[in-house]
Design a protein around this nucleic acid. Sequence first.
RNA 1: GCGUGGGUAGCCAAGCCUGGUCAAAGGCGAGGGACUCAAGAUCCCUUCCCGCAGGGGUUCCCAGGUUCGAAUCCUGGCCCACGCACCA
Length: 1029
Amino acid sequence: MARRKKARTRPARLRQRRRRAKPKRARSRPVRRRPSAPRRATRKPRGAPSRRASRRPGAKAEARSKGPDLKAIALKWQVAWEKAHVYVARADPARPKWYSTVPYPYMNGFQHLGFGTSFLRAEFQSRYRRMLGYNVLHPQAFHCTGLPILGAAKRVAEKEPKQWDILRKMGIPDREIPKFADPMHWIEVFPAATMEDLKGLGAAVDWTRSFITTPLNPPYDAFVRWQFHHLKDGDFVKIDKHPVIWCPKDQAPIGDHDRIEGEGEVPMEYTLLKFPLADGRFLVAATIRPETVYGQTNLWADPKAHYVVAKVGEERWILNELAAKKLSEQGRTVVVESTLRGADLIGKDAVAPAINRAIPVLPGSFIDQGRGTGLVTSVPSDAPDDFVALRDLQQDEATLTRYHLDLERIRAIKPVPIIRTQGWGPLPGVEIVERLGIRSQGDREKLEQAKAEVYKAGFYRGVLNENCGPYAGMRVEVAKDEIRKELTSKGQADSMWEPSGEVVCRCTTRAIVKVVDNQWFLAYGDPKWKTKAHEAIASMDHHPEALRKWLDYVIDWLRDWPCTHHRGLGTILPWDSNWVIESLSDSTIYPAYYTIAHALQGGDLRSKVPWASRLDDAFFDYVFFGKGAPRSIASRLGVEAKVIESLHQEFTYWYPIDLRNTGKDLVQNHMAFCLFNHTAIFPREHWPRGYGVNGWVRMAGKKMSKSRGNVWYIREALRDWPADVIRLTIANAGDGLDDPNVDLDFAEIAQVRLADWMRFATAKHSTRRETHGIDAWFRSVLNRTVKATRAAMEEMSYKAALRHGYFDLQSAWSWYLRRSEDRPHADSLRRFIEVQTKILAPFAPHVAEEIWHRIGGKGLVVDAAYPEVNEKEIDPQAEAAEALLQSTLSDIREILKVTRLTPKRIALYVAAEWKARVHELARSLAAGGGLSMNVLMEKALAEPGMRALAKEAASYAKQVAEELRHARPEELDRFGSVDEFAMFRENAHFLTKELAAKVDVFRADDPRRWDPMKKADRAVPGRPAIYVE
RNA sequence: GCGUGGGUAGCCAAGCCUGGUCAAAGGCGAGGGACUCAAGAUCCCUUCCCGCAGGGGUUCCCAGGUUCGAAUCCUGGCCCACGCACCA
């Protein structure tokens, strides 16, 4: 949660995206902790050996070879569970069900702890629910749809060093790498590897329901087709134009990972301004600032560049050849008719849109011919480029003369103020050039900075001024669109797409924007559909609750989603075989598929079940909706009717999903899509019931990512640590949307503590049979602990669950032992071991199972009943008594610390009976709301014997009245339930031992008390007086 | 810019929704002690400042406000992380 400011040298966004050679890591750094080694006294300098090094199989672990072998224990129980089919789930209407999953991971590599974390956070819940008595389904499949596998395989084939390096870093030996040139090899290797990894973590998964996506697995392919038919029938799919970043050489869209430069850049619409020449042709200039048209003073053309005359529609446009080409890729009919030199345009007059005035074309060398049209309109008031170019030109007589320009006229051109922005003068373009000291058009870096600054200020805070005709007084943000609309409708403007920043394809070609005109979309932009998705969100549980707000926002923000591609692995769009369904779109409602997958897959990731290769829409309609006749469907497929009837039952039993958990990166796509598509296809009772989201995993405080080279694969982790240790470390890494932090120091501690716990739980202990006061305290704490742990488990706050259910419970036990002089009551010991083992079971199932087995538990602990809360054993009195003892102990210590005395003898004086009585009166008055000094005294004096003490009573009553005036009811209850004298008497021996000095307990009003310093009077209820000698 | 989540002692991190029991849990680090020939492990104590009697002072990003009372609620500001799309 507390994210500290780290020393950063570059913007995080850049750094994170940059792929660069990873620093070699020193892996031999010793793990052993020495008192003298200041491990974290200072921040490590950049490039220092990563702390990751310390996860090498610990020297410490080896040194403690006498400890149990946690890895062997893990393996033992994994085999046992598998043999007993513990996690194989089948519908059982007699039992309540629980269904959790995580989105399947993409199979282009081994899975790392990022996925491991999302997975385990769902799995902890599955295990917890199992122990609560639910019939639990927790399946896991593998995603192969899309481009990355194909792309990576191709890069292996091309022997691209970077790609080879990635595989090598995953631990794949060099001789194996060439095999990855075949995409099928990836699909063979990684799903199997992921299963192995998850099994190694002790995953409680029903593997009989596992599968891969794409047509390689026919029943899933059929399921996706069925889904798309449904979406199309319900009008959730539509066809439309769509701008994409496009490589003109490859003739293909360029996704982020196919770019050398320009990750994250998107298509952006420019306004084309049309400037009619006297001969009816148009000079066409592109701009992203149509709102500045009222400040136009001239046009710029590059005299050295070449332009073309192109027939666009019925008009003749002058622009550069690349722009003509872009327009033709954007659905325009463009015919290039002739070419001309930029120099030919200089000096001509053209009529500027909006202001409808002739302005001259002037020579400018700063124009980027790769962007826009190669012609630029000039607004020197707000565009630093334009102002600088104009200033240069006005002083450059040679150039003016060369192009036969009218010196007087050009020199008379002045910037026209058009935008008022708070904090800026009337001419921001001029102002910033002067402020930054920009000398010429060549000063590119400063000019870019200037442009960005002026634009940002003007766009968000600027208002158009009186020079802007009808738009005077309008905010720039609004005027931009208004002006563009008006100019377009008058034929003075048009539009063109460009990438929002420079994008370069892997093939080194600069990208353009193409408008694809028959792109299929999922209509997530549809307000009616959005409404249903919001309803789904409202009806669900969210972990953490903040997720609800975020999802609502995402649903509103989503636009229509292009759901098909021309390339990549995936299901062919059923009604248009030119398209393949894109990978997020084939993965929205597949939790439904899991419910029937066991029959369809027949135990293979790629189904070989004959009848399952013939599935049609009618099959799914019956299984999911109960529509149609099972007999005829079955006979058509060549399977018994009762098989598909049972699948219908499986589906209706398991659905909807109770918990779907993932990393926060999927919120704005998969998690939202999953909701959208469920609402489109399934009735309300089958919409998801719960979502969970966790942050990005950090390793020792640093974000884990491939590009940083600090990825920790599950298999690597498993080499270094026992599964239970990894699981505990992840459970402890943090809850909420904050990024969980995998803390390797914690892992070391967890390893030691797990081993200790196992030793403790299975060892013989000397116990007692007789009951002490402290036993009630421990029972009470035990029950409260279980209560708190259950609440934390329920809301997926696993770190909190560990804190309550493990750390707090352990320290309660150790206090209890201290108070029992190391001889616990036999029942307390037994219950402690049982409760603790069960609470640990979801997190450390292997060790828990081993303990359970050794202590003679019935069956398997993973199936055992989670500890119950016995409210009757929660004993506020016992806890209050113990709190009083502890606070008294710490008061004594405080005195010892301050006085630096070594105590010989200590006396405690418990408050006199009459004070307790006054306090009690005060409490009852306070509870009734009528506590005042007068009333209190009146009541007090009515008590027998109080008259004699009137003076002291008054002084004490005043104190109490003050103290309790603002006390709340639950505070009042804490007092008075403890028989202080008896309690201290009983524990005098304990105090004596703790303080290494004889402790005597007296009543404050006992005339025979030992009280040399007359401290006894200071005693009040809840706070005995103390004297130290 | 928009959205989301944050900013708590040397570090990590609870608490905040539902104000008081908060000088603020827990862990790490540090110091002291017990045990031991010694080390490790373990256990105990201490760890904002001052204080030879259980007390006082100043704290929970900053500035205001609400309240008898604010780490917690409200307003404004500063700072940090993540996301912003056709794709996993």
